[in-house]
Design a protein around this nucleic acid. Structure first.
Length: 1129
RNA sequence: AGUCCCGUAGCUCAGCUGGUUAGAGCACUACACUGAUAAUGUAGGGGUCGGCAGUUCAAAUCUGCCCGGGACUACCA
């Protein structure tokens, strides 16, 4: 790897490699360096482009890129999201699909505007005054792609394959033109309409506020407002008979609804009272505390305690102003439902609504009995809930406050008063207070008090916000609600719950889509309206607009307008404001139409990307047809009601189709403590430095394997390190091991494939596992379950390939002739590595490609220059051998048991032992073990396996209930039966085995138990050290005979001498001469194992001498041996 | 407030349609391996499976309620 730093040296080495036909060997694993190199290779050889061009005629797999805003810097969560997108696109490419990946940039919207305002030190009010809209928008255009280079850098660095050369950009004219086309489609279908909506509005700033702005820190503040419980007088008629009939004849006092408000200024605009359908209300006889007039009031039963003292209940009905003892008495109770539709007299009748019914009781689901009276004062103009209710019941509204925040004319003494002190008037009197005084005097206020609560404030002016109806254009999504639900049911959501739950519920409660934004930098609404509001024209293309301009030119003189058509046309090169605002059109009836100044919600921009990215339908019609709908999209779960929704809504409305067939909504990336990352907290992870340090592959692998994409990821750098060590380190070691010996033996895969059945058992086994692996991984990717795929691959590499196959086969690679067995070993390992390179390619594209190339450049087995152009491995079903996999599992289990037994009695593996004993309960099991006997014996350094059967009489059997089978059969008796079975004696077990059934008495009832309902295991061999795992039992003969001791000593000595060789820096092939000082405890070992020792340490001579000076001392099983090891020249 | 997700060992996560010793990796401790070695393996300790009820012969798993973390949406008269 080091040599790659120098290009000349690199060429030289590659030349050498070519001449020598050798696999590259590495000194260390440096992922970032490797990725850098592979990344360059991709660029130079245009691998990404080729991955598309070579599949030109294949079926497409359509992917949509959700456009990021280049206005902000990429964060680590983008790496996460893009890793998911990338891996499925790469996988489908490997599966042979044509996967086009057009990138895109989201360029409009508030964040851009805010950052421009911050940069220029201006506020929204300055736009059009201190700075022209033209200059402002030019600034936005510059600002928005500020970080584009950073985005491109991270894209390359993380190995995200997306076509950056021809991105769609939402501010471009072509893009906007498609949006207009879409809007016109909706307009023509009658799905675009103008209406009121209640929005947070700052009278002081004279602007509506987005919820985004309202969520700025510090906007909600604790304030003290005058609150009032007002009395709304009930009208006595048929509807209210239910109430009046409950009043005793002697009581002639009027009946009032009590409703509480913290915004008394909205009371003149009241048009309804809302109650809860299921809430219980009471009619209470009492007095007005301020006037002492006898009254009857209605309020929620649950809230009586808030206004009445239980001490005065049912007291004599006498009261004077100023007294505290307010007597009260419950006359009757009702369910909310019974009160529905009852009318009341207007509280403050300055004006009457003209747009609908008013002053009646309605039902609303939002009413609670947590505070207030359980009856909600409803002013449709000043509350979103109120507005919704008004629409539902066809209620009229009153908007007696203007946009400056003052009462309009015709509100009596309040006319012209500001509802809050917006002008910082020192002598300001609050109409809230004045209204309350008035109500008190008129016997219409039941309780007035200061109330402290949280109320939103404008973050620019620090003044209270009000909710105010504003003109807006809507998309009538509710018209297609049913269809949207139906289509949604055909979408494959990952996870499913997001689709059915979060998204599904959202669709069920769908509201019309408010498109209007009163901003500057965004797609202008292509709507021109006459002054009287009666005629509206929607423009669907630039050509159409040009045509209309020509017509309007002729009319310009009529309207007395200075109209420079040439200038206007030139300015059409930019469809943004302010140019577009200067255009006026003429309606068919000859009215002047001017543009509605609103912009389109940016979510419309991105939701229309399937069409707009191709400038459809003005161009690329065929291309669009082939690329709609998408097979796959992926974004964060926070986009559920954002992009996922707008895509779906537009596709449904425009094409009666889904926009995407499969969608992965991934979770958030949190810090390692599970907190949201934020710059403020300083816990955000910089993606650049992370990728620089750990590499993209390790980062991607970590992200994908650590948690399911839709679970939040607790991002911990240490986890990446672990992945690097554990997974890539292991894989790298395996490759290096392979390369080392393959180069020595000049294995370049030229020989004929050794038939699978001619290969040793262990080769067949790993190939079997490998094919099972391919199958699993393929299924996982097909089902959009990348985490399981990654974990399965990881387990295969770690547990099976490295820790079992390579470890057990090491000797096959470095011992002996270049025989068929050796070739089989090479071929097997090669196949595993190459296949793995393909399986991991979607997740870790760099390392995979390097592995692929390193193997393939020598073998030339594949005709592809990159793994990403290669074909997905085919599952060879008849290579999968379940019983082989099973018996290898048995071998692993037995080895593990023997090792644990050795551990228990503290005998190291280097000490050979004579035998182990395995009880066999059936012939099949015995055959299984015998097939893998040699592997086990060499692995655990034991000389023999002895099988014992019950005929020898040493096995102690135990019975255990099969809960699943017996539980279903016995039900309540299960527990007793299980206990009975556990204490079966040998005779009972024997009976069960011979007769295949046994009867036991449980709860005084005879119960038949069949042999298949019981598991029989041998858990113990009396007198032996045994270990169990499931049904498996192993006993170990731990007797160390003098012969075994000597052999153990010999091995120990060899081990120490090998270490000496290595420490002395001898080459692997150097010959040596060994001299050992005589010692009673070691002499016989050396004599008996002389040949073995010499062979292992490559000694040509071994001498034993009485006294040895200048000797080194090595500890051999706790006694010191003096030796001299000399290199033979 | 509503909708959805998550809560299993100190940490990160597996545990399928309920079935009896609740698993892995990291970390920790001990030991081993030493011709894949700036690697690796084995063993051990460590868990009232967020809490409480319920269904069931049997609940980490199913149901309800509650608590905690998160996301989105809507906001309080």
């Amino acid at each position: 790897m080091v040599h790659l730093l120098n290009p000349l040296l690199k060429i030289f080495y590659e030349y050498c490699a070519w001449i020598m036909n050798a696999y590259k060997e590495y000194k260390s694993l440096d992922l970032p360096l490797l990725e850098n190199e592979v990344g360059k290779f991709w660029v130079e050889e245009k691998i990404f482009e080729k991955s598309i061009s070579t599949r030109e005629d294949n079926p497409p797999f359509v992917f949509y890129e959700g456009p990021p805003s280049a206005n902000g810097m990429p964060g680590i969560h983008h790496v996460m999201g893009r890793a998911i997108k990338d891996l499925f696109c790469r996988y489908k490419t490997q599966r042979g699909f044509l996967v086009n990946r057009k990138s895109g940039w989201d360029t409009h919207g508030l964040p851009v505007e805010l950052s421009v305002e911050k940069n220029l030190g201006i506020t929204k009010e300055d736009i059009g005054k201190k700075i022209s809209i033209e200059e402002y928008n030019a600034e936005c255009r510059r600002e928005v792609l500020k970080h584009q280079d950073a985005w491109e850098k991270i894209t390359h660095k993380m190995g995200y394959w997306v076509d950056l050369k021809s991105p769609y950009i939402t501010y471009e004219n072509n893009y906007i033109e498609t949006l207009w086309w879409a809007l016109k489609q909706l307009f023509d279908k009658g799905l675009l309409y103008e209406g009121y909506t209640i929005q947070p509005y700052s009278p002081a700033a004279g602007t509506g506020l987005s919820t985004h702005e309202l969520n700025q820190p510090g906007c909600y503040r604790l304030v003290k407002d005058t609150s009032v419980v007002a009395q709304f007088k009930m009208v006595k008629d048929e509807r209210s008979d239910v109430v009046f009939s409950g009043i005793h004849k002697l009581n002639n006092a009027p009946v009032f609804f009590l409703a509480w408000t913290t915004t008394p200024w909205t009371l003149p605009s009241n048009t309804a009272l809302t109650i809860g359908e299921g809430i219980e209300y009471t009619l209470v006889q009492t007095f007005n505390p301020y006037t002492a007039l006898p009254i009857n009031v209605i309020l929620a039963k649950a809230l009586i305690g808030k206004y009445f003292d239980s001490n005065f209940e049912n007291k004599e009905m006498i009261f004077e102003v100023g007294k505290k003892e307010l007597p009260w008495k419950i006359l009757s109770t009702f369910k909310g439902k019974q009160l529905e539709g009852i009318r009341y007299e207007q509280l403050l009748s300055f004006q009457q609504p003209t747009d609908g019914d008013a002053f009646k009781v309605i039902l609303g689901d939002f009413v609670t009995t947590e505070d207030g009276t359980g009856i909600v004062h409803t002013a449709p103009s000043f509350g979103a809930d109120d507005f919704r209710m008004a629409k539902k019941y066809g209620l009229g509204s009153l908007t007696l406050v203007d946009k400056q925040g003052k009462f309009i004319d015709g509100v009596g003494e309040f006319s012209g008063m500001y509802i809050k002190n917006y002008k910082d008037d020192a002598k300001y009197e609050s109409p809230d207070v004045l209204i309350c005084i008035k109500l008190k005097k008129e016997n219409k206020a039941f309780k007035v008090e200061k109330y402290e609560h949280n109320y939103p404030h404008c973050w620019r002016t620090d003044k209270p916000v009000i909710y105010y109806p504003l003109d807006s254009w809507f998309v009538k999504t509710t018209a297609a609600k049913k269809r949207m639900v139906e289509l949604n049911n055909t979408i494959n959501w990952k996870p499913e719950s997001t689709g059915t739950g979060r998204f599904g519920n959202w669709l069920e409660n769908l509201q019309d889509w408010n498109l209007s934004r009163s901003r500057f930098w965004g797609t202008p609404l292509p709507l021109w309206k006459s002054e009287d509001g009666e005629e509206v024209m929607c423009i669907g293309s630039i050509n159409e607009l040009k045509g209309q301009i020509t017509i309007s030119e002729e009319n310009a003189k009529k309207f007395n307008l200075d109209y420079d058509v040439q200038l206007i046309s030139e300015n059409l090169k930019d469809l943004h404001r302010p140019f577009i605002d200067r255009i006026f059109l003429v309606s068919k009836s000859g009215k002047k139409l001017s543009r509605t100044p609103d912009l389109v919600d940016v979510w419309f921009d991105s939701g229309a990307m399937p069409y707009a990215q191709w400038h459809y339908p003005f161009e690329n019609k065929e291309l669009f047809d082939k690329n709609f709908p998408a097979d796959f999209i992926a974004e964060g779960v926070d986009q559920t009601r954002g992009w996922f929704f707008t895509l779906h809504a537009l596709a449904t409305l425009l094409h009666d189709s889904v926009a995407y067939k499969n969608v992965v909504s991934n979770g958030l990336v949190l810090d390692k403590g599970g907190n949201k990352m934020s710059k403020r907290l300083g816990n955000s992870v910089d993606p650049f430095s992370t990728l620089d340090k750990y590499g993209a592959d390790a980062t991607r692998w970590y992200m994908i394997s650590n948690s399911q994409p839709w679970d939040n990821l607790k991002f911990d750098i240490a986890g990446i390190d672990e992945v690097k060590r554990k997974f890539f380190g292991t894989l790298y070691n395996i490759y290096n091991f392979f390369a080392l010996y393959a180069n020595i033996d000049k294995f370049i895969y030229k020989e004929e494939e050794v038939l699978l059945k001619s290969r040793p058992e262990i080769d067949q086994w790993i190939i079997s596992l490998l094919n099972s692996l391919v199958k699993t991984v393929q299924d996982d990717f097909d089902n959009y379950e990348p985490t399981h795929a990654a974990r399965t691959i990881q387990e295969f590499v770690d547990e099976h390939l490295s820790n079992w196959y390579v470890r057990l086969c090491r000797r096959r690679f470095w011992k002996g002739e270049y025989s068929e067995d050796k070739i089989a070993a090479y071929q097997t390992l090669y196949t595993c590595l190459l296949t793995i390179s393909k399986l991991i390619a979607p997740i870790s594209p760099f390392f995979a490609d390097k592995l692929f190339s390193d193997l393939n450049l020598v073998s030339r087995k594949e005709r592809f220059e990159s793994v990403h152009l290669s074909e997905w491995p085919e599952v060879v079903n008849n290579a999968i051998n379940q019983s082989l996999e099973q018996r290898m599992q048995v071998a692993q289990d037995i080895s593990s048991l023997v090792l644990s037994l050795r551990k228990r009695v503290n005998i190291k593996v280097r000490q050979p032992l004579n035998k182990m004993i395995i009880p066999v309960l059936n012939e099949k099991f015995k055959k299984q073990v015998e097939a893998v006997k040699d592997l086990i014996l060499s692995e655990v350094n034991v000389k023999e396996i002895e099988f014992i059967t019950e005929t020898e009489g040493v096995i102690k059997k135990k019975a255990k209930a099969n809960f699943k089978l017996l539980g279903q059969k016995l039900g309540k008796k299960m527990k007793a039966a299980a206990d009975a079975i556990t204490i079966f004696n040998e005779a009972q077990i024997a009976e069960l085995e011979t007769n295949k059934r046994i009867f036991v008495v449980i709860d005084n009832e005879k119960v038949e138990i069949l042999s298949e309902e019981v598991e029989i295991v041998s858990e113990d061999i009396p007198g032996w050290q045994v270990a169990n795992k499931n049904e498996l039992t192993v006993a170990l003969d731990i007797t160390i005979t003098p012969e075994l001791q000597e052999e153990g000593n010999a091995r120990e000595l060899v081990n120490k001498l090998q270490k000496m060789r290595k420490d002395s820096g001898f080459n692997i092939t150097d010959r040596v001469i060994l001299t050992v000082e005589k010692h009673d405890l070691i002499n016989s070992t050396i004599i008996n194992f002389k040949n073995y020792i010499c062979a292992e340490i490559l000694a040509d001579d071994l001498q034993m001498i009485g006294q040895l000076s200048d000797a080194e001392v090595v500890e051999v099983n706790d006694f010191p041996v003096k030796v001299i090891l000399k290199q033979k020249k």
